[in-house]
Amino acid sequence: MTDRHRSPLSGTSRTASGTSRAARKWREALTGYAFVAPAFVGFAVFYLLPTVRAMQISLTDWNLLRAPRFVGLANFERLLHDDKFWHSCEVTLAYVLYNIPLQTALGLALAVLSDRLARSVILRALIISPYLISNVVSGLIWLFMLDPLLGLTNAWLVAVGLPHQPFLASPDQAIISVAGISIWRHTGLTALLFYAGLQSIPKHLYEAARLEGAGEWLMFRRITLPLLRPVMAFVLVTTIIGSFQVFDVIAVTTSGGPADASRVILWFIYENAFQFNKMGYASAVSILLFLVLILITLVQMRLLRADQSDLD
């Protein structure tokens, strides 16, 4: 980098090489731009531009079929007083709160168990299999299995003397059931990430602890958990961001119902945009969600950074 400040005039003998160095630098920069160009086009056209356009649309009243009408911040103002919007925030939050802790805890348990008891790659392949099928497919199969009167799940509940559960058909259980389906699909991946994290923990730490007479639980709390924190942070960042955007499973199982019980933010946006054709309003909600996600990500990135230095 210091080369850049060397003047080509500082010596005639250097002029030639200096020019060629500048030329080389120029060529390298050009190469850089050329290499980045396709990706940059993709970024500019499909990320940057639409973000700006979404902001514009959010300031209009537009039903797709007629010309948009500028309304200023009216959409955002309406949003603040829209009970349905706030309800969808509550539902989404409930979903995140059911989904994340359970999925993380189960994934961790699964990882530790397979690390200690069965390290076969076949076991891990079996556990990861739900992740390989789509949300739509998992949603459909579970919809069939969770049917209130006909489903297999209820047949088993009754067989062990428990009452029928309505699951997806009930306003009280719909969102838990949707969370359950997501947990089924994603726990394997979470477990796999934790499992990989476990492999990077130096084994001598356990040996030393065991020599001092530490039990399994103590070692888990004192060694495993603290050293797994970077992976934990990664898992939490990705799953929380993903959970705020749950949509597919809901589209095939409940369509936001019954009685709005599973109308999460993304369904609310979808409904407004593509069923009521209120593009402006839907964009306003999208922008708000974007801001909230940035906030969450920033907070988590901070945690992530702190944790990384923890490991070193």
Binding site: A39, Y47, L48, P50, S286, I287, I294
Partner: peptide
């Protein structure tokens, strides 16, 4: 800039991208 765009929820992009 690229990195920051991971934070944009896909739904924000869907509508303008659909129109594009």
């Amino acid at each position: 800039g690229f990195l920051a765009s991971t934070m944009i929820p896909a739904i924000v992009l869907f509508i303008p991208n659909f129109i594009l």
